[in-house]
Design a protein around this nucleic acid. Structure first.
Length: 647
RNA sequence: GCCGCUGUGGCUCAGUGGUAGAGCGUACCCUUGGUAAGGGUAAGGUCGAGAGUUCGAUUCUCUCCAGCGGCACCA
């Protein structure tokens, strides 16, 4: 007999090898009917997994949040079964995990799948749900399983099992005539999976994620616990499409891209205003945080990149050419080596440290064509880059100061949430293990002493040092890695930077690479999507449009425009011979935060009728009050630094 | 770079083996209208580029380019 503790704390005894299904039945027929998987001592298992010892058992139904993953995984199996039924030996199945919002299955097939195939597959998946096939776990000997999958022509599956140690037992799941290698758990039958799923897209994907391997066809799908959840998800996708920065960039006349300059941005007047506003905002913050701004050459001799180590690792992603004489040059892909050159001019003393050197550095990287994406991933971009040259014992304070700056900026820009990721040494790297130990330790200590919670991101550091990444969550719940902070002992060594210490000896400075926004292009793309184009007033490229009701009020309107310009508001006038409805609609679609309507009444009383973007009503304010309102709302929020400590 | 899809006026998109159409936008005219589209007229296209099949290609085939969705990459 075993003793089972239920979720409500109740204890019951059952015969040995009782299954969660038996337990559910003992509680109520209804629970048995609704049960889909169980959690035994913290681990999710099938309903018919025998329980061998005293355990805590929780019976889960489909509405439990952890079950969603199982639903998605089950749906992936439905897809594989449907595909085998429809295409048989013409395909091989490989892997099909659950992912955020859904699942995918990678399938090997000569012929490409078409959207029509997706419809067929989806219809067949629904049939399999209707058939309500039992899903049964079987334990196989490893070698037997390999033989089995080879026998049915599933060589990818066989290859996966070959990676499992000899003598191990592998679990297979059988549903109808379909067998798949799988760890589980799964629902007891296909009928319970439900039909709140949809196949969404087709894509290529490399076998085992390696570009040297053959390419498989990946079918993506989304799956949910209920039809309602599915609908909501599809609605969210539609909303995201409406906010696409490429679409809004065009509609709001911010920028454009074209073939002749692929991967580079043509900033239109309004977009450039936005860009400059953001840049000036950051510039103000940096100045108050004790940075100095510099500017360095775009073109640098290849020798410098060889010395820094970038040539070795990134040459294929650099734009290089000869000057026609003896020199090979590269467009800088980043600013660090150039900043070291400035540091090296003259001799530096420990008294000069920390030296915080910032640059809105214009970088070029020859990104693979398939990587380009709107203005989010481009070949020509500007970073809000800076390098802090400091002593090792100053790392902690500098990390703290940077973190404060970062929090301050993110808050101003309308982000309330961000995550911190810690990336440690990658496989291919520069510098000794000893150096990496020190760099990783120093950075971790700095984070921990500031009580900054972080998650590990193993092996993802830069080639010269460990990296902290700051990941913003936008209004649609998507994550964007923006800020970064990297500790680097390698470059100062390689490029021979030094300072004189208190004892008159030469020392190597440590270099902290850091950015708050990352690439301005990418950040602006993200800002556009985060705000759906409806920027806070201080960022909006056009803050106010003044529009007279009839041409009789043009003169008064022009005066209002003049007054707004005098106080530095970005204002446009719309004196066209159009109805007020038409103008309201047009400028609302262009997402102008404030529309000032002026007519006879306003002129007589020296007021303006204000319509705020998204509002249904209007507010009539004295002109002087309206000016004061805009002046305060339109101000760049860098006037005060809230949490920044003094140097 | 790899796999798939797409490429028609400024934008969104129809369409056809016999060299093209709509809506919006633009220009002009009428309209002076109080908070999300007033009316009329007109202009505007080498149908992504090149080659091939054909009497004839925007349409079919091939190559290339770019965009889109993924994968790989991301100092």
């Amino acid at each position: 007999m075993i003793e089972v503790t239920l979720a409500n704390g109740q204890q019951k005894t059952f015969p040995c090898a009782t299954t969660p299904a038996d337990i559910a039945r003992s509680i109520s027929e209804r629970l048995l009917k609704e049960a889909v998987v169980a959690r035994v001592d913290g681990e999710l298992v099938d309903l018919n997994t025998p329980i061998a010892r005293d355990s805590r058992v929780e019976i889960l139904t489909r509405t439990h949040p952890e079950v969603l993953d199982v639903i998605r995984h089950d749906t992936a199996h439905l897809l594989a079964e449907a595909a085998k039924e429809l295409y048989g030996d013409a395909i091989q199945i490989t892997i099909g995990p659950s992912i955020e919002n859904g699942f995918y299955y990678d399938i090997a097939r000569e012929e490409p799948f078409t959207p029509a195939d997706l419809e067929q597959l989806e219809a067949r998946m629904r049939e399999i749900v209707d058939r309500d096939e039992s899903i049964v776990r079987e334990e196989w000997d490893r070698d037997e399983a390999i033989k089995f999958f080879k026998g049915i022509g599933e060589h990818y599956k066989a290859e996966i099992i070959e990676g499992i140690p000899v003598g191990d037992v592998v679990s297979l799941y059988r549903q109808g005539k379909f067998m798949d290698l799988c760890r589980g758990p799964h629902f007891p039958s296909t009928g319970k999976i439900g039909k709140a799923f949809k196949l969404t897209k087709l894509a290529g994907a490399y076998w085992r994620g390696d570009s040297k391997n053959p390419m498989l066809q990946r079918i993506y799908g989304t799956a949910w616990a209920s039809e309602k959840d599915l609908k909501e998800h599809l609605f969210r996708i539609e909303e995201a499409e409406k906010r696409d920065h490429r679409k809004l960039g065009r509609e709001m006349d911010l920028f454009h891209l074209q073939e002749e300059a692929m991967g580079s941005t043509f900033w239109h007047p309004k977009g450039w205003t936005l860009y400059r506003t953001l840049q000036n905002y950051i510039r103000g913050k940096l100045e108050k945080a004790g940075y100095v701004e510099v500017n360095t050459p775009l073109l640098l001799d290849k020798k410098l990149w060889e010395a820094s180590g970038h040539w070795d690792k990134f040459r294929q992603n650099m734009f290089t050419f000869s000057d026609g004489e003896n020199t090979e040059l590269a467009l800088k892909p980043m600013n660090c080596p150039a900043h070291v050159q400035i540091f090296k001019q003259g001799s530096k003393s420990y008294r000069d440290l920390p030296m915080r050197m910032a640059e809105f550095g214009c970088c070029h990287r020859n990104e693979p064509s398939g990587a380009l994406h709107g203005i989010m991933r481009v070949r020509n971009f500007v970073q809000d880059d800076a390098h802090i040259f400091c002593r090792e014992d100053q790392i902690g304070t500098e990390v703290k100061k940077f973190y404060e700056l970062l929090q301050d900026v993110y808050e101003d820009l309308g982000f309330s949430e961000f995550k911190v990721k810690f990336s440690d040494r990658p496989e291919v790297r520069a510098g000794s293990d000893d150096m990496w130990d020190r760099a990783e330790e120093g950075l971790k200590t700095a984070l921990e002493s500031e009580n900054i919670p972080y998650i590990m991101n193993p092996g993802e550091g830069a080639f010269y040092g460990p990296k902290v990444e700051f990941v913003l969550r936008d209004a649609l719940g998507r994550d964007w890695q923006c800020g970064t902070l990297q500790v680097d002992y390698v470059l100062p060594e390689r490029l021979d930077a030094s300072y004189m210490g208190e004892d008159g000896q030469k020392y190597r400075p440590v270099m902290l690479h850091r950015a708050v926004l990352g690439s301005l292009e990418r950040f602006i793309g993200m800002l556009i999507e985060h705000h759906g184009g409806k920027f806070p007033v201080w960022l909006a490229p056009v803050q106010v449009v003044v529009m007279p009701i009839t041409s009789d009020s043009n003169e008064y309107g022009a005066m209002v425009v003049r007054k707004l310009k005098e106080i530095g508001i970005r204002v446009e006038e719309d004196f066209r011979n159009e109805k007020i409805n038409y103008k309201i609609r047009e400028h609302s679609l262009k997402k102008v935060p404030y529309l000032f309507v002026v007519g006879k009444k306003e002129e007589e009383q020296q007021t303006v009728s204000i319509r705020k973007l998204g509002g249904e009503t209007q507010e009539v304010l004295a002109l002087s009050a309206a000016l004061a309102k805009l002046e305060s709302e339109g101000k760049i929020p860098s006037e005060t630094i809230r949490r920044l400590s003094d140097k």
